[in-house]
Design a binder for these strands. Structure first.
Lengths: 188, 188, 188, 188
DNA sequence: GATGAATGAGCCTTCATTCAT
DNA sequence: GATGAATGAAGGCTCATTCAT
């Protein structure tokens, strides 16, 4: 790996951790430079601004996650199995890199608005699947947006509790329970 | 009401709206002064700092809401009826003052951390009720924190969707559906 | 005079002196604040940016001078008497406030370009008068722009020499000689 | 020509063009490196600093021009013929390399001060000639500095007009007119 | 010789806070 | 009580310069 790429990655990772810890607005360039042990100016070799850095970070990871979820959907035979693998995937992603998970899924609305994101979000993939399933099953009266909100809400709020230290085990441990809870939400 | 109180309330309300719109960090004293048509210095007659203002705003309203919910709990004969009135109360609170609802329930974690809140939160009341219910019913294997997270998550994420304009009707309209969904989460 | 106006004027004068001494680009906000014994932030109560300050300074004074020259033209019976009073006016302006003169007449092209000036410049008034005179006298073959350039050039370069300390007396002392020289330029 | 010299010349030429276009202060090392397609560090192999580069550029070309003018003076039989060839030389220099002309003759006073030039300037040669002529002719009452200023002023301001696009033809085309104008200035 | 990544001082600007009026 | 001018620390960003490769 080239030296330049190494530095860029260091900046990205350091910024990611601080953005999650303090929020984008409250993280200063100096914070990133100090924590990453680089000079403030170095950051600007790789990113045109703090916001550009935050956006690249967000869009890159969102794209990866959304693409993974798209694959899960393609591989699944029915909606239930997709939903199941979707939740397991989220739990594993959480356990693999909790900071990354927080940045992608738990960024504050205010910070999110700064980024002016245009990419497809992971939750959009889920919403598509819900919409399609309702249509296929003739459940025209159900609001796909609302159900998606409830599904994401129960997962992410749980993740939030985990982050606050209120849940003792690895997040994947709760995957089954989350799957059941979400299935219950979907039942008529 | 004394003039002073009127000014203080104006500051509180103006700040509330801006804190919700832009976040605490991103709201400046000048923003508040301009929008409230008061002088920048006036704010400091009632609050020692911007953060003290944000904190007072948060704790006051949280205390009111938590107390209301505590009352609902006291008046309810069983957990289900409490849960039902809890959700209806949240929906009504949302419709009555959407900005206040957002500040109390949807404040970003980063802004929340700034405040160093020590008060009991509304969701703590719910968690107590869930814990008690599980104990009373001998469901020792169920994690009250986890279930509370799922309940709050499905409600708040739905609220978030409503705020984003994805749900056309008043939030109270969805109360029944939310109650059903939450009841499903609780079923074994 | 209100306090605010006093401070604004202090900023304007201090900036003017530094802009002339070092150029706009090379003058820092700190330079202005230090020399004017004000805080750096104070400057931004009155001007949105350093360039806005530089521009206001330029356009205000240019407008005044151009208007004065316009008056001289209106009061003059013929071109020669206008030219004479024009030169005397420039010399007096120089002696009254040498720094102001330099800012209005000897700003470097690079700094001038920063300002994106839209106002009529003093030399434009002269050029109009020359154009009109040539037309009236049937001297269609003479280029008014070129002649204006020569007139302004001989005056301003002389001013430049005076500023460099190469001319011992007050600038007005050389007014007559400049008038003669300029008249010679105009002769066929 | 050695490779090194080629690179150095490239730096010199690229810097010259940018210094004229934007001013020395506003031209960055990166500007020069980008335009010249060289690395930023390369510049420091040939010059100790940006100012040293600007100074070398100025002094080299000033020396050449001053020397050329000195030769013209030596070759001229009388002052008028020298003045005539001096003006023609300036016009030809302008047409041959307009950027170089601007750097040598139209550098802003602020940038000029940065350079701390010690060389003899071209206008000094002219001033010497004027001084000598006045002395020889017994015109002790005329101020050589003043007259030199007027001569240079009318030429350079005209050059400035030409640069601004206000004069359609090659600068040499106006040489005769400039010569006449300057002769008029000199007449009693 | 040439490169370009890295540095950090310094620039312009913002903003929470103070205080004389 | 209220004002808003003034403050100065701190933020984002730039850029001349250095140095390992």
């Amino acid at each position: 790996m080239r030296v330049a790429t190494k530095t860029k990655d260091l900046v990205l990772r350091t910024a990611l951790e601080l953005f999650v810890e303090k929020g984008i607005t409250a993280t200063t360039i100096r914070d990133i430079a100090t924590k990453g042990k680089i000079a403030e100016g170095t950051l600007y070799r790789y990113f045109t601004s703090k916001d550009a850095l935050a956006k690249e970070l967000y869009e890159t990871h969102c794209a990866t996650v959304a693409s993974d979820i798209q694959s899960l959907r393609a591989e699944s035979h029915d909606f239930e199995s997709f939903l199941s693998s979707f939740i397991i995937y989220l739990c594993q992603t959480f356990d693999k890199d909790i900071v990354l998970f927080q940045y992608v899924f738990l960024l504050s609305p205010n910070d999110f608005n700064r980024l002016k994101v245009t990419e497809t979000l992971p939750q959009d993939v889920l919403c598509d699947a819900v919409t399609e399933t309702f249509k296929k099953r003739g459940q025209v009266d159900r609001d796909a947006e609302l159900v998606t909100a409830q599904i994401m809400g129960s997962i992410l709020q749980t993740a939030h509790y985990k982050i606050c230290g209120k849940l003792p085990r690895a997040f994947s441990y709760y995957a089954d329970e989350l799957v059941f809870a979400v299935f219950r939400i979907l039942r008529d």
